[in-house]
Design a protein around this nucleic acid. Structure first.
Lengths: 156, 156
DNA sequence: ATTTTTGCAAACGGTTTGCAATTAC
DNA sequence: GTAATTGCAAACCGTTTGCAAAAAT
């Protein structure tokens, strides 16, 4: 999600702790830090990016712990996993209010977000038409972002 | 694509050969075989599946060649790459007439396809609204397929 | 005190690459 | 005949796992 407010991040962290207690799992420093790193990130992070982000704050956490905690966060539904086709798994905090689509630029590899109410309303209906029980969706539009279009026009 | 007709497969193969000649690249037996394996497959194949499919026909082709040719096919736009989140890249022949979405079952891992005209019309418009030059899209609906819903009801 | 997590390093598995032999043109 | 591909095996790299030490309950 494009930069959650600190209140939203705090809420997600509290929900993660609740999830852990509910499942009789220890609430550790590492889990708090990893969850917070994702909830406060402005964009979609890879596992390595989470690890670096924490290292830059002086928090040395094993990469294995990062992966294990990311799994927990995905299972709890508090973060979402994406694979945009470049071989990296990326994670982002789950939006409290709803989902969004992604605009993936084939030139610079950047990913922007968009929301569209009509689309959001449509997708569960389509699932239903195919007797498929809807849980969530993923919409990616691939093409060229505005900046790269202009860069191409300028002949660089 | 859910089983292209042999005419459609033949057309795609001819377009692949044309693409190769256009780029001054040799048309080899291996490239023909790999392309045909995908174009005639009933579903989404992994690189390993393509390799096995050919091996079963007595065609021993190196897995590296499979990967290299899949890259060419993706670049040529004649096949599409998907990553449904299980760690495998899957490939399918590009539909001559248009795209389709995927229904990904979280229980059995199966993938069904659907088409929806209204959705197809909508997506390029959404891209445009965000000043994004549309090339293609990917829509996945995640949930539970019909068969797994029934299996759950039966209490298995 | 018991149970689970953590962190390291090694293993894993899909994908990519270097290079000599082969094939396409 | 020249230039590119092929196939093998090794390398690569993101991710997972085994296990002893450390932390949470």
């Amino acid at each position: 999600m494009a930069h959650l407010t600190s209140a939203e991040a705090a809420d997600l962290l509290e929900r993660f702790r609740h999830y852990l207690r509910e499942h009789r799992l220890p609430v550790t420093q590492q889990r708090d830090l990893i969850a917070t790193a994702i909830f406060t990130a402005p964009d979609h992070l890879t596992a390595a990016a989470v690890h670096q982000r924490l290292a830059r704050q002086g928090k040395r956490i094993g990469i294995a712990t990062v992966y294990r905690t990311l799994d927990l966060l995905v299972e709890s539904g508090l973060i979402r996993l994406h694979e945009f086709g470049d071989g990296f798994r990326r994670y982002e905090g789950a939006a409290p209010q709803g989902s969004h689509g992604h605009l993936v630029c084939g030139v610079c590899g950047g990913v922007e977000e968009f929301t569209n109410e009509r689309l959001e309303r449509m997708l569960p209906i389509i699932a239903d038409e195919h007797h498929f029980r809807y849980r969530t969706h993923r919409v990616e539009l691939h093409g060229t972002c505005r900046a790269c279009q202009q860069r191409t026009l300028e002949g660089l």
